[in-house]
């Protein structure tokens, strides 16, 4: 009853987003649309920091679909001088920027019910969920995969923390556009495909294996 009322107070895009989870999604890896994404933020504190930009790209059947990608920059009230040197996004810049709510709407439209993939996804999820909460919306409903965790599913990988840089080096992925959301999303997408292929060389990989043991321990 409460949830029904709540639902009525929500903006259309949120309702549309929730509706996308009603039909049963395919549970074959080759038919699944994965959305690999990354956020750039003003800092590492979800409670007080803000998302500066979101980059995302779809992956389906071993193809990275550049035409199905997403890149957005968000207008800021809060501005953290210290992290500018990492992400290079200025408060006023020449890039087209949107408001946070518009950005979330576009992002939810883009991801739909796809499986979300990110490197150390916990942090990115937390940032987005916090932003959703500020808008009085619920949490993301998507299934999620952390490439950092996925990598550990390979044989003989110690249970330690692997940064995106380390893994890109290990998989010989040239690190262009590092620390832009879209650039990192693209790197992560390549990493994702390479890890999947490595796992497939070791054993048969089922859809459900992707999610097992996923501990959303991110870069928190």
């Amino acid at each position: 009853m409460i949830s029904f009322l709540k639902r009525n107070n929500k903006p259309d895009f949120w309702i549309k987003y929730l509706d996308k989870f009603k039909p049963k999604s395919p549970n074959k890896i080759s038919k699944t649309r994965f959305v690999v994404f990354d956020t750039e933020t003003t800092g590492l504190e979800p409670a007080t920091d803000r998302i500066l930009s979101i980059g995302a790209i779809a992956v389906k059947n071993n193809n990275i679909l550049v035409a199905d990608s997403f890149e957005i920059y968000i207008k800021q009230e809060k501005f953290n001088r210290d992290t500018v040197k990492i992400h290079g996004i200025l408060k006023q810049g020449h890039l087209k920027k949107t408001t946070e709510i518009e950005a979330l709407e576009m992002f939810l439209n883009f991801i739909g019910n796809s499986v979300l993939v990110a490197h150390h996804i916990g942090f990115d999820l937390k940032m987005i969920n916090t932003a959703l909460k500020r808008m009085n919306l619920g949490r993301l409903k998507n299934k999620t995969i952390d490439t950092g965790v996925l990598y550990k599913k390979l044989n003989d990988k110690e249970n330690k923390h692997f940064s995106l840089d380390v893994l890109c080096d290990a998989f010989k992925i040239p690190k262009h556009d590092r620390h832009t959301a879209a650039g990192d999303a693209y790197l992560t997408a390549q990493l994702f495909l390479k890890i999947l292929s490595k796992i497939k060389q070791e054993r048969t990989l089922h859809y459900s294996d992707l999610f097992r043991n996923s501990e959303n321990k991110g870069l928190l």
Partner: peptide
């Protein structure tokens, strides 16, 4: 204002 497409630019560069 510029709409940015970082990934496409990277592919363009190649």
């Amino acid at each position: 204002m510029i709409m940015k497409n970082t990934i496409a630019e990277r592919i363009y560069d190649f």
